[in-house]
Design a protein around this nucleic acid. Structure first.
Lengths: 146, 146
DNA sequence: TTCTTAAATTATAATCTTTATAAATAGTGT
DNA sequence: ACACTATTTATAAAGATTATAATTTAAGAA
């Protein structure tokens, strides 16, 4: 499953003329297997065991490359650092404002908003982003208790 | 019109026990009158004529206070610095990826997404954010020309 | 109005994330 | 295996935001 995704991603690299380096391989693998939404620093720390000499710049550079190819989505929330998400299907995120947990959920049919905006503003729309904010069950629960 | 909004905003400050300082007055006024979506630095620069001694920290501090009260929304896009928007009605933004222009548009009925997400994830949903990305008419135009 | 006190501002430094630079290294096609 | 160029590394720089401590000031009470 995730094997296939990695294979496909590496294929995308080849197709685009982007060299496959061990670092890129590892970053992609980590992004695919990680069910969280890591920051650049998360990735850097996670891989420093395998690549003791890897530089932060490498992580940032490659995340940018992946983003440009469309393999990875960059998510900027209010907090300090950007988060990165391997692109699979069209899903959205619910973010807990208490503990920061991010949960995926699928939701179809938000394309109409794009059409609407395009008509109203005259923009040539390419995509949109949406997130939902609230409190996760755990955090809601702990509050009710005391 | 914008007079009333300012008055109301100042009233909100009083209600919340937040002191009304000349700097806060000026920042609010600027946010209300500015039809753009200024960064903290924009505001700082715009007011340095009136407040030659004002510190950047003051701008940041007060924007945070305004956000906590709910007077102001903080928008984080991919680019380096956050933008701030005085909260009026429920509107969304279309952002030009070429020149960075931000255009408002009103769109109702995205509450269903919140309900949906709430049911699927069990979150206690408070709000959402959505933006649309694309190219503004001007930038699309200049491209078609050459 | 004046006084008092806690809150806000200022000035500055520190922190943190991200990007730029230049030299060294390593993929990839021939 | 070679050559060419992209990539990595190490480091520094830039830019945004926050922390700190001293000074100033808003706002209620006397």
């Amino acid at each position: 499953m995730s094997e296939d995704m990695l294979k496909e991603a590496l294929h995308s690299l080849k197709d685009t003329g982007v060299r496959i380096t061990p670092q890129r391989h590892a970053i992609l693998e980590y992004l695919i297997n990680s069910m969280s939404h890591p920051t650049a620093d998360d990735i850097y720390k996670a891989l420093e065991g395998t690549f003791p000499n890897m530089s932060v710049a490498t992580v940032y550079n490659n995340l940018r490359v992946f983003r440009e190819i469309g393999l990875v989505k960059e998510l900027t929330y209010g907090d300090s650092s950007a988060r990165f998400d391997f692109v699979t299907t069209n899903h959205y995120h619910v973010i807990c404002q208490e503990c920061g947990k991010i949960v995926d959920f699928h939701y179809p049919g938000l394309d109409e908003v794009e059409h609407f905006a395009s008509q109203v503003t005259g923009f040539n729309v390419s995509h949109h982003r949406m997130e939902i904010y609230g409190e996760c069950p755990e955090c809601s629960g702990t509050k009710e208790v005391h």
